[in-house]
Amino acid sequence: MRQFPERLLNGYNNFMSGRYADERDRYRTLAEAGQSPHTLVVACCDSRAAPETIFDCGPGELFVVRNVANMVPPYEPDNQYHATSAAIEFAVQALKIANIVIMGHGRCGGIKAALDPNMEPLSPGDFIGKWMSLVRPAADQIQSNDLMTQGERQTALERVSIRNSISNLRTFPYVKALEEQGKLQLHGAWFDISTGELWVMDAMTGDFMRPSDLATAAADSEPAA
């Protein structure tokens, strides 16, 4: 009989004696009253970029959807299976979340595959090739720029993909309507795994900036008293 991974069992035991013991009442309240997270985070499956860890959030605070390269497809109400779209619908319509964050990260394997669709062990005919075709036009443009290094191309597409997903979010009628009513805010963020830095997208310009720089820019743009 195959045994459950020991590392996971040890981690669970530590969880029960540590965090769960400290937050037992909170978990019971969440179980009885249900969840009411304030933010939906669409993040990558990458094991190095867990939103709950990066944002230091406890149980019940974030509703997290993770897929390859943290992408949102356009609104397509057909008879196919749409896991990410279903999660967005549930978060917005049922949970009434106030924020959606598309969080990309550095050194993303999905983005690397989009820039080089023939890289091993992937191929354009498999699931990842089809999924990453969502950013194919941008990938082709960036990959053809000979003045950029491969690392620069990677970072550029990681960030362009975040903007693309935010644009696709606005094709969901209820997302667009709630944003226009001021009841829902859409955000972009990019996490640098190697340094731990978080870059936040300026909603007005689309530029990615460190939060401290973004706050300074916002203050500078305010009219003088």
Rank of each mutant, 00 (worst) to 15 (best):
E158A: 05
M209Y: 10
V200M: 10
S194K: 12
K176V: 00
F208V: 10
A203C: 05
M209G: 01
F191E: 02
S194I: 02
W190G: 00
N164W: 01
G188L: 12
M209H: 12
G206Q: 09
S167K: 15
A189R: 09
Q185S: 13
T149W: 00
L178T: 02
S144H: 08
D213G: 00
T216S: 07
H187G: 02
D202N: 15
K183G: 01
I162G: 03
A217L: 10
R163T: 14
S212A: 14
L157R: 03
V200W: 13
Y174D: 07
G196T: 10
E179F: 01
I166H: 03
G188S: 09
R163M: 13
I166T: 00
P173G: 04
L157A: 07
W199P: 01
F208K: 06
I142N: 08
M201L: 10
E152I: 06
A215C: 06
G182I: 00
E152L: 06
M204S: 13
Q154E: 13
S165A: 11
R159E: 14
L169E: 08
P173F: 04
L147S: 12
D202C: 15
F191L: 06
V160R: 07
L198K: 08
N145T: 02
L147N: 12
G182N: 05
D207H: 10
A217S: 13
Q185V: 11
I142K: 11
A156G: 00
L186G: 09
D207M: 09
G206M: 07
W199M: 13
D207Q: 05
L214S: 01
D213R: 04
L178F: 09
G196N: 10
P173M: 03
Q141H: 10
E152Y: 04
V175M: 05
L157D: 05
D202Q: 11
V160K: 06
T205K: 09
V200S: 04
F191N: 03
M209F: 06
S167A: 15
A156T: 15
W190N: 02
R210W: 04
G182P: 01
Q143Y: 06
S212C: 04
T149L: 00
M201K: 09
P173K: 09
F191I: 07
V200A: 10
M201C: 04
I162R: 07
Q181L: 12
T216C: 01
S167C: 11
I166Q: 11
G206S: 05
P173S: 07
L178I: 01
L157C: 03
D146E: 13
E179N: 02
T216M: 09
F208R: 05
V175K: 02
G196D: 08
L157Y: 11
D202V: 11
R170Y: 05
L198E: 08
S194G: 07
T171A: 04
W199D: 06
W190K: 03
M148L: 15
A156D: 03
G188M: 13
Q154C: 00
R170Q: 14
Q143E: 12
Q185C: 09
T195N: 05
L147W: 06
E180S: 10
L186C: 07
A215W: 14
